[in-house]
């Protein structure tokens, strides 16, 4: 089994998608980022150069180009680089792509994949560190995919490109270098299936994107203190696999929800709501929420670290949930 970093796996998933479907096409460049992993994109260019266009810096029209093309039978993959740039295409994502299937009563669909890099990335400052997926999740009609491992990235990308819905694959930019063995062959991972990344008895950490990696690190630290932490990666925010989350909390009786979006109306809030409204009695202690505090992401490293819901905050939250 070959080793791939997450960027290479994303690209591999795309390559299989383009091989499988002649309607698939790429709008954008820098799909593997501009960091050390950027060369992963070369394979895609070599095999499918003629099916890639490098668009102008016209975020709104590019989103609509992808959406209109999807409605007319193409399967576009639209890359935005930094997620916050897609704020300029808010209308196109929400009013057009997300609505069209419903408002045409099923006559049309918009099978477009939007690809965004989100998250605190080190010096991104207020305009390059945004994680908009909680805002997207507040709109019906969008599928939201948050890969955290190379294997998942490849399989989820494959599903995104095959999906008949507008799908946002939103990738934490700092995870692109994660490396593991990835099956060389074509495979896909279905949406709406959370995965237990680590078994535990005492507390369930339900997380997504970057926070899954931080949670696994926190679990290692806490293990030395005798706390057994279960880590669940939701993998897709829409659809959300509430069953797996609830099963984990029912097993451990304690819950920490952690995610990089803002605490208020953020993903962690939704995760807690989904548990307390379904399995309140399973909770032995008050659930704990870890998210970004309500401040723009500052530039300076110590300030940036203070807003990042990283490993230490998860460790503290687990101790609180377990009353340690």
């Amino acid at each position: 089994m070959p080793q791939m970093n997450l960027a290479e796996a994303l690209i591999d998933g795309l390559i299989w998608s383009l091989r499988a479907d002649p309607r698939a096409t790429i709008i954008g460049r820098g799909i593997a980022g501009h960091g050390p992993e950027h060369a992963a994109e070369d394979r895609l260019k070599q095999e499918f150069g003629s099916r890639i266009i490098d668009p102008p810096t016209s975020e709104a029209a590019v989103a609509q180009l992808g959406t209109g093309a999807a409605m007319a039978g193409a399967r576009p993959f639209v890359h935005y680089g930094t997620a916050v740039f897609a704020y300029e295409a808010w209308n196109q994502f929400i009013n057009e792509a997300a609505n069209i299937h419903y408002m045409s009563n099923g006559q049309l669909s918009a099978p477009v994949t939007f690809h965004l890099f989100h998250g605190i990335r080190g010096g991104g400052g207020p305009q390059h560190s945004g994680s908009p997926y909680a805002m997207y999740a507040n709109n019906p009609g969008l599928e939201i995919v948050l890969p955290t491992s190379p294997r998942d990235a490849k399989g989820l990308m494959r599903s995104a490109m095959a999906s008949n819905n507008p799908t946002i694959v939103i990738q934490n930019a700092q995870l692109l270098g994660l490396t593991e063995d990835v099956p060389a062959e074509d495979y896909s991972i279905p949406f709406g299936k959370a995965v237990v990344k680590r078994d535990g008895r005492d507390v369930s950490v339900i997380a997504c994107s970057r926070s899954v990696i931080d949670a696994l690190e926190a679990a290692d630290i806490l293990e030395k203190e005798g706390l057994s932490v279960e880590v669940v990666d939701i993998r897709t925010l829409a659809p959300l696999d509430v069953d797996t989350i609830v099963a984990s909390v029912e097993k451990t009786g304690r819950m920490v929800a952690v995610d990089e979006t803002y605490e208020i109306c953020g993903v962690a809030s939704e995760l807690i709501a989904s548990v307390v409204t379904r399995a309140f009695s399973a909770l032995k202690t008050q659930p704990v929420r870890v998210g970004r505090p309500m401040t723009p992401v500052p530039f300076s490293p110590p300030l940036e670290a203070a807003v990042n819901p990283g490993t230490q905050k998860i460790v503290d939250a687990c101790r609180r949930a377990c009353k340690r």
Binding site: G68, A69, A70, A74
Partner: peptide, 12 residues
Amino acid sequence: ALAAGAAFALKL
């Protein structure tokens, strides 16, 4: 903008 997208798909 949507029609430009449709044209893109038809061209492809």
